[in-house]
Design a protein around this nucleic acid. Structure first.
Lengths: 204, 204
DNA sequence: TAGAATGCGGAGCGATGCTCCGGATATAAC
DNA sequence: GTTATATCCGGAGCATCGCTCCGCATTCTA
């Protein structure tokens, strides 16, 4: 029982820290190229690191993604607060949604990952997703109170819609114009009062 | 050179035809359970057929999907024509889109496959996708001429949007209500005149 | 410098998509 | 019924994937 105090009680080893950064750098590149479903072997290869090392640092693909995206997501959360303070409610919402799409646009398949994560409390990305939905929900609530956005949707609806827009951007990355156009369709759908959908008889 | 006339010149062998049907039956089940990305080994196992047999009949996953869905898709195309003849343009469009979502809702991941296929002329599903977009485009054009749908979108936009709705349905299959709600948001976005998006300064 | 905690790397498992070919089988001709 | 052959079947095999596990190297503390 002489092993009361370990040799390295706290503070990671320097090489471990170095490898962690190498892996993150590689992951940024590979995920940027292949999307959310990138081969983790490719990441390890590119980082010049064994596969076991990668899994030691990031036991789950979601752990890796979470680290890659946390910064971006935190930025989006604070941006929501800023916009809510400086812009008129509807404009703040539009602006934030647009920023969300730009921020998440780099990684193909991310929209699906975010939606899957939203319903899985065990995922490391779950907290970020909830925070995101919360931010969207706050801006949405203000805009609804201001009478600028239809009242019959909630934060989860909005989060789902904006992710659907991200999904659209994934499908045809070459045609950026379409994404922008469909964004306005979607915003107009949020703006009108509910009930307009019922086709009713043709007005003569 | 006595082999002038082959033993079985035309008409498939009976066992081949039988296996083809077994594979299709199995595929319906397995794809229904696992979605578009189902394991083809599972399909072969369930059909009690060798893997080579499956690949002989359907060299590509898309070949299999195409056979599974052709009937449905043909039905959607004719339904578009029928609706165009019997209903007021906007109502016809709404009805058809709703039917499209119901028809494609059974298979998870189908929305993504359809979008990918739309840009790949070599895919066996490509023809069906184009036909689908065409059908949607025709109904859209009529509704636009009638002044019921915003004029700044085209058939591909519409096809993309409806597939995005299908994607949404994939994400949270448990909450059917959300899909319906977002469908109305989306239809309202189609109905309003363009330009309403610009937030403008807050009205005092 | 010595000891031990810590981290590294890749072999290995089960699964996947897809190819390929020896052998079984159904059909047509006799 | 017999035979011949076109046709088809089945699964072994290759490459890749996600993920685990453990012997060995490295780094830090004392």
């Amino acid at each position: 029982m002489t092993a009361e105090s370990p040799a390295t009680p706290r503070g990671r080893r320097a090489d471990a820290e170095r490898n962690r950064e190498r892996i993150l750098d590689a992951a940024r590149t590979v995920v940027g190229e292949q999307g959310t479903q990138a081969s983790l072997r490719d990441v390890a290869r590119r980082a010049d690191v064994g596969l076991g090392t990668l899994y030691r640092h990031f036991p789950t693909r979601e752990d890796l993604l979470e680290t890659l995206l946390r910064e971006r997501f935190d930025g989006l959360a604070t941006r929501a607060a800023d916009l809510g303070r400086t812009l008129e409610p509807a404009a703040a919402l539009t602006e934030w949604l647009s920023g969300f799409i730009v921020s998440t646009g780099g990684y193909r398949g991310l929209a699906g990952s975010l939606m899957a994560t939203l319903n899985d409390p065990d995922s490391p990305l779950h907290a970020s997703c909830v925070a995101m939905r919360q931010a969207a929900g706050d801006l949405l609530g203000r805009a609804q109170e201001a009478g600028r956005i239809r009242p019959d949707i909630d934060g989860t609806d909005l989060f789902t819609l904006v992710n659907a827009l991200g999904w659209i951007a994934d499908q045809a990355p070459s045609e950026a114009g379409r994404g922008a156009r469909l964004f306005t369709v979607f915003m107009d759908g949020l703006a009108v009062a509910p009930g307009a959908t019922a086709p009713g008889p043709a007005a003569p």
